[in-house]
Computed example of a mutant assay.
Amino acid sequence: MAVRLDRFRTGWQRGALGAVLGIALAALLGHLVPSSEGLPWIMAPVGASAVLVFAVPASPLAQPWPVVGGNLISVAVGMAVGKLCAMGGVGAPVAVSLAVGFAIAAMALARCTHPPGGAAAILGAMYGIAPAAHLPGPFAPLALNVIGIAGIGWIYNAATGHPWPHLTAVPPSPAPMRTVTYDREDLDAVLADWDERLDVAPDDLDALFRAVERRVLRRWEDDLK
Rank of each mutant, 00 (worst) to 15 (best):
R197V: 14
D186T: 14
A121Y: 00
V51Y: 09
P141D: 07
L123C: 15
V33L: 11
D195C: 13
A99I: 07
L142H: 02
G148Q: 11
T168S: 11
V81C: 11
A55T: 15
G47L: 12
V180C: 07
V68I: 15
V20W: 11
Y182K: 01
L205C: 05
P171V: 04
P138I: 04
R111V: 08
G69Y: 10
D188N: 04
V81R: 09
L198H: 10
A121D: 02
G78C: 08
M1A: 12
A143Q: 00
Q63F: 00
A99R: 04
G117R: 06
G148Y: 14
N145P: 11
G18A: 09
D199K: 01
L84G: 05
V96E: 11
V3T: 15
T10P: 00
D223G: 04
A48I: 02
A119D: 10
S59K: 00
V200P: 01
V51D: 01
P138Q: 01
G117S: 06
S35L: 08
P60G: 04
N145F: 02
Q13T: 00
W65N: 14
L109Q: 03
A189E: 07
D206S: 15
F139E: 02
G18C: 11
L205P: 00
L135T: 12
D6P: 03
G148H: 13
T168H: 09
W220L: 15
A27F: 10
T113W: 13
V216Y: 13
L17M: 15
L72W: 05
P45C: 13
S49D: 12
M177Y: 02
L32H: 00
G124Q: 07
L61C: 09
V200S: 12
A119F: 06
G11S: 05
V190C: 03
A50W: 09
A48N: 00
P40A: 15
R178W: 06
A92Y: 00
D188T: 07
I122G: 02
A55P: 05
